[in-house]
Simulated assay, not measured.
Amino acid sequence: MFKVSVDPGYGYIKAINGEGDQVRFPSIVGMAHNLNLNRALGGLIGDKRDEDELKKLHIRYEDDQASGEFFVGELARKSKNASYCFEQNKINHQHTRILIATAAALLAPEGKNIWLGAGLPLEYFEAQKNEMKRMLTNFQAKITFVEKNKTKQIKFDRVSIYAQGVASIYDGLLYPNGRPRYPQFMRPGNLIAAVNWGTRTVDVAVYEVLEGSLEIRGDLCFTLDDAGAMEIRRIVQQAFQEKSGYPISILDAEKIILQKGYIFFNGREYDLSKEIMAAKKHITQLVIDALQTKLGNQTSFIRAIFLTGGVVEDVRDVLDLNKLKTETIIIPDPQFADARGMLHMIRLEERIELQKKKNNGELFSDIG
C-alpha cells in the first residue's frame, strides 16, 4: 500500500508519504472568492506572485457531509471568514476532513491504495482514537485543485491512529532505515522523554528502554493544554486591546507575530515585540516547570529529552536547555517529527505483519 502519514495539528497540517515527499500548510480554511482582481493588481504593481503550490490551495470539495469551494492554508488568509478549529474534539469538524483530504491528495498518486497514519493529542488519544479511525475508514471525498483543474477521489484503504508525542520519539531515535541514531541511549533501563510542543497542546511521553524495544511509561506521560503557540497569540490579543482599545481576532494576532510585532492600525503604528518576547518566555517557563513538577524525582533519571513540534522553533531564542539538567536534543525540522515518526510506525507495523505471515508460511505481496 502507498503510505501517507498526516499530523493534523491545530496550527499546521504536516504530512509525508513513503517516498519522502512532504507538505506543510496552516490549518486554516475559508470560503473561496474570486481572485481575478488580486491577480490583475499584482501584475500591475510588479508583484512577484508566489509560485509555491502550497500557497495557492484553492479547492472544490465534496463529501457526504459538505461541499463547496474553499481556500486552504496560506491562501485562506485572504478569505474574510477564514478560521482555525481549536475544539478539543475536532474529528468530525468540516475543516478536519478538508485539511486531511487536501494533504492526502497532494501526496498520494491517483489510483493507489492508501495506508493512512494520523495523530491525536496524547491526552485525547484513548477517548478519540476509535472515533477518528471510524471516520477516516469510512471517508470518501472528491477534491479538485482549481488552479490546475485536477480532480482526485480520496479514500483510505487502511487507517492507523497514533498518539502525538509518542510517534515523535521514533523520529528522534531512529534513522529512516530503522537504525538507532543514539546507540548510547538504548541501554535497557534508560528513560527517554519526548516533548511535543504544538500550537495548542504540549504532549510529554516517557519511554523505558527494554531489550530490543521501547515501553511507554504511562504513569509519566501527560499533556499541557494552552501552553503552545496559541497562548502567545492570546497574549498578543490582550496586549493589543490594552494599547489600542480594540479587540482583534486570533488571525490578526498571528499577523502581528509574523510581522515581528509591528502593526499599523487607526492612524498609528503599534509595536508589540516586547510583549511577544515576554509571551515566549512565559510559555517556555510553563513547560519547564511542568516537566519538573509532574515528573518529580524521575526527572533526574531521564537519559535524554527530545524536543519536537513547531513551537520549538518559535521559542528557540529564549529556550535555556541548561534548565532541564539533562541532555536535551532539538530534533531537526521539529515540526515534522510526528509525521515522520508515524511513518516509522506504519513501516514497523508492516514489518511485524509480514514476518508473522512468513513464519506461518503465507504468501504476501504489496511491500512498499
Rank of each mutant, 00 (worst) to 15 (best):
A279E: 03
R39I: 11
Q94G: 08
I100V: 14
M135H: 02
K274P: 05
K112C: 05
G18F: 03
V29A: 02
P332A: 09
E19L: 10
L210T: 09
P188V: 10
R351I: 15
A279K: 04
Y246F: 12
R347G: 04
Y162V: 11
Q237D: 05
N322C: 01
D314Q: 13
D225Q: 14
F306N: 04
F185R: 03
G46F: 12
E74I: 09
L41K: 13
E269V: 08
G46C: 11
P247A: 13
E211P: 02
K48R: 12
I257Q: 06
L120H: 01
K80T: 03
S249A: 11
F185M: 08
K48F: 10
D338R: 05
E126F: 10
G310I: 15
E231G: 04
K14S: 04
D289R: 06
N17G: 00
Q128E: 11
M135G: 00
G309P: 04
Q88R: 15
G111M: 14
A76H: 05
M31T: 14
L174P: 03
Y61N: 02
S213C: 10
S79L: 07
G119E: 06
I235K: 09
C221L: 13
K152C: 01
E231R: 10
I257C: 08
T326Y: 05
Y246C: 04
S168N: 07
I329F: 08
Y207S: 01
D63W: 03
I367L: 15
Q94M: 12
L106G: 02
G9H: 07
N297E: 14
R347D: 12
N266S: 10
Y84P: 01
G11R: 06
P183W: 15
R200F: 09
P180I: 15
P121E: 06
I28G: 00
N266A: 11
R158T: 07
I114D: 00
A193G: 01
F364S: 04
F265V: 08
A141N: 00
K281F: 08
N149E: 12
L348V: 14
G43Y: 13
P188S: 09
R268G: 03
L122D: 00
A290Q: 02
I45F: 09
A32Q: 04
G310Q: 08
K55T: 10
I154P: 06
T151N: 00
T308I: 11
A227G: 08
Y270W: 13
Q259Y: 08
Q65V: 05
E123L: 12
M342K: 04
D171Y: 07
D64K: 04
I13G: 03
G73S: 08
R233G: 03
M230S: 06
L286C: 11
T201C: 02
A104D: 06
I161V: 15
N92E: 15
N34D: 14
S365C: 09
K356M: 11
A167F: 10
Q238E: 12
D333I: 10
